[in-house]
């Protein structure tokens, strides 16, 4: 048993006690009961390990970026579009800024987009899925028809057009656009899970003893869709990061902060693909690939762990 698991298995009261208070730690200890086994399984998959390592690396980069960036944010030299050298390992951009510095600063915004947009998508998706699956009837019909439409309009086209309508875009605008267009799948998955839960006996029993709808949703249905939502959420982070970089690349990204997508946009506009420095395009792109891959691996490993049907394979 690793230290990490021990922390959740027995020590949660000691570690979390001062933070959340004595009563809550009991609840947390209780809900963390199966956690040790889960982490075991999770760590056992190579995907989980690799993915987690990548994510931790980039998180650390966000926290410590300011300590390690070679140049100041606004520094620009007279050497434009220089090939990589010891002074500028990733080369310089079209106004002489250091590409490595830009890439490191971009990490924060790119990850922020991933997490916040995911939270928005998951919130809307889970809510909509629960309502539509649990109450069914006309609510379900209306919601699912709208959902079909959101799934039908090609995702990128919808995002591009919405982004185009905004005259100026901040990071928050872009996050909301991505979050608000990305919940359809979650809603669909949650709905089908709720539909199958609804026919199970423990829900019927709860109804028989007179439990209200809200109580059943909160105590019986919601906890059973959480694992599913969780695995889905991690994959959604990856998609949100990809979406942001695509929007930025097509000149529709946030205008107030540096992101990887914006570095790529500048690189493409400066014809770095034709004349170099190739690192200007390759390196920020590799960062996106690595992070998205990291989250995808973790999401995939989570799915393997949380979905017992897959386990016996």
């Amino acid at each position: 048993m690793t230290n990490f698991q021990r922390l959740f298995d027995r020590g949660s009261r000691r570690v979390l006690g001062p933070i959340v208070g004595p009563v809550w730690t009991d609840k947390i200890s209780l809900s963390m009961k199966g956690f040790g086994k889960t982490t075991d399984l999770f760590i056992a998959t190579w995907m989980g390990r690799v993915g987690l390592a990548i994510i931790v690396f980039f998180m650390a980069l966000v926290v410590y970026a300011d300590l390690f960036v070679p140049y100041d944010r606004n520094f620009s030299s007279t050497e434009i579009l220089e090939d990589p050298s010891w002074e500028h390992p990733f080369g310089t951009d079209s106004i002489g800024r250091d590409v490595l510095t830009r890439t490191m600063h971009g990490t924060k915004a790119s990850l922020t987009v991933g997490f916040v947009a995911m939270a928005i998508s998951m919130g809307i998706g889970t809510g909509v899925g629960l309502i539509s699956g649990y109450w069914g009837g006309w609510r379900d019909e209306v919601i699912m028809r709208f959902n079909d439409v959101f799934l039908s309009i090609p995702w990128l086209v919808l995002m591009l057009v919405i982004a185009a309508v905004f005259e100026s875009r901040t990071l928050l605008t872009v996050i909301i656009i991505i979050g608000a267009t990305g919940w359809s799948w979650t809603a669909r998955i949650v709905r089908s899970q709720v539909l199958s839960l609804k026919t199970r006996q423990f829900i019927e029993r709860a109804k028989a003893i007179g439990a209200g709808d809200m109580h059943i949703l909160k105590k019986h249905v919601f906890p059973n869709v959480v694992p599913l939502v969780f695995a889905n959420a991690i994959l959604t982070i990856a998609i949100a990061i990809l979406s942001e970089s695509t929007l930025s690349f097509l000149h529709l990204g946030p205008q107030d902060v540096e992101t990887w997508g914006r570095v790529l946009e500048d690189a493409y506009v400066a014809s770095a693909a034709m004349a170099g420095p190739y690192t200007f395009i390759i390196m920020p792109g590799l960062c996106i690939v690595a992070v998205v891959l990291g989250f995808t691996f973790v999401g995939y490993a989570m799915d393997e762990v949380l979905n017992p049907k897959l386990r016996r394979r």
Binding site: A238, L242, S245, T246, F249, L250, L264, Y268, A273, I281, I282, G285, I288, V289, V292, L293, T296
Partner: peptide, 12 residues
């Protein structure tokens, strides 16, 4: 390839 922005793959 799922993790790769298609526009970036195109550039590469």
């Amino acid at each position: 390839f799922y993790g790769m922005p298609i526009f970036w793959f195109a550039i590469v």
